Simulated scan of single mutants.
Amino acid sequence: VSGTLGNSKWIVVASSVHRWDDTRILYRQAASLSALGKVVLFAPAPFRRKKMGNITIIGIPPWHHKHQRIRLIASLYFTFRNNIKHVKSIHVHDPELLPLIYLLHRKNKHIGLIYDMHENYKELIYSKSWIPLFLRSAIKKIYVWVEEKVIPELSGVIYSPKELKNKLLSLNSRAVRIENYPILKRESAFPNLEEIKRGNNKVVYLGQMRRIRGIMELIEAIKVVSKTIENIRLEFIGRAVPLNFEWEIKTKIQQLNLESYISVRGHLPYDEALRLARDANIGIVTFLPTPNNISCLPNKLFEYMQLCLPVIGSNFPHYAEIIEKNNCGLLVDPSDPNSIALGIIKLLSDPDLIKKMGNNGRRAIDNEYNWENESNKLLNFYYETLSVNLL
């Protein structure tokens, strides 16, 4: 990562982890912020530079080892420092970038600095398989210390898990909750209510496949369902994390003789994945009860709702607030394959219920859970916290 930002004043968005085409960062936030001026996005990408409307994407090399990650963060710091006079604000999306913006802030207090917390990071540490078990508690303490040191110095904080509200407001009064809801304008990938025609007993899982997201339990549930519904189909659409987990998934499918019932399609472009999912009957989001999973609402929940898919979700309080409130799906025990299977069988046995719940979910997206509403919150937040910088 090197070079200059030129003579323009930029709104900088940066991630050292999330891909350049991350839906929250690029298609929602960066696209909305481009209404305020030129946006430059630094994120892992297979190219060096790309322009999309008022957004310039600077590709940074994906890291594969810890030392590469450290060098990458250092490189970002020097790039920002050397071009600081061309920067209006810096909006970072990863906890490891907190020290970076803190160091920049010490000598550049006129620059707007925003930290975006997608998840409850201090709890997420315990589910990171690459962190040795004996180090996780210590790393959590270090992260909390950094958070309490840096966040009060920032221009503002954006967060998603609502449990973080009181803690963040105690550190910085300029904290706002902004969810990653679907974009209503991207209608090409989504059906209208009257266009829904299904009868193929297809179930879909969208997004990254991780062990803590209940993938193995879902496979076992399909084995149970197949004894009642012979033409059941499950499609996994997304990459496995870590990559060798895909081998475990396929091995599990073979062991249970489910090759004709389950397909693993891997990562697909966002709109292509949604177009493939739109023909399903049910969307699955049965994450296992880890602290972070319990406190966060996954994107796929709302994507299923926009696709008019009834949802089978984990029986967590946050999920219930959406699914039960809008009568758009069923709650199950994500750690029990039989509970998941019963939910799938109940819906597939009642086409009218599928249609009713699917339509309920879509109406909720149209009326409440959409990015257009969240975009207004984001722009107002920028105006209120960074009004001087944006002039």
Rank of each mutant, 00 (worst) to 15 (best):
L288G: 12
I365L: 03
Y126C: 00
K250V: 05
I344P: 11
S335Q: 09
D116P: 09
N293C: 04
N376D: 14
M216A: 09
A221F: 10
I55V: 15
K355N: 11
I262E: 06
A273K: 00
L184N: 08
K122I: 04
S335K: 03
M52F: 15
L391H: 15
I282R: 01
P298W: 05
K51N: 13
P337N: 06
D271W: 08
D94L: 01
N327R: 01
I183N: 13
D21M: 03
I344T: 06
L33F: 14
N299C: 01
L274A: 04
T23G: 01
K141E: 13
Y102L: 05
V241T: 12
D366L: 06
V1C: 12
R363T: 11
C308F: 09
K51M: 05
E148H: 14
Q306D: 07
W371E: 09
L378G: 10
P298Q: 03
E259I: 00
L193Q: 09
R106T: 12
N201R: 00
L154S: 10
N180E: 09
L218W: 06
I60G: 08
A31N: 14
P44V: 00
F190L: 01
V146T: 14
T251K: 06
I25P: 13
R48H: 15
Q29D: 14
I158N: 06
S137E: 13
I25S: 14
G329C: 04
L301A: 12
G6S: 05
L276Q: 10
S16D: 14
Y181V: 01
E303V: 00
I212G: 06
E374L: 04
N201Y: 11
T4D: 13
P152W: 09
V17I: 14
W371Q: 05
N327K: 05
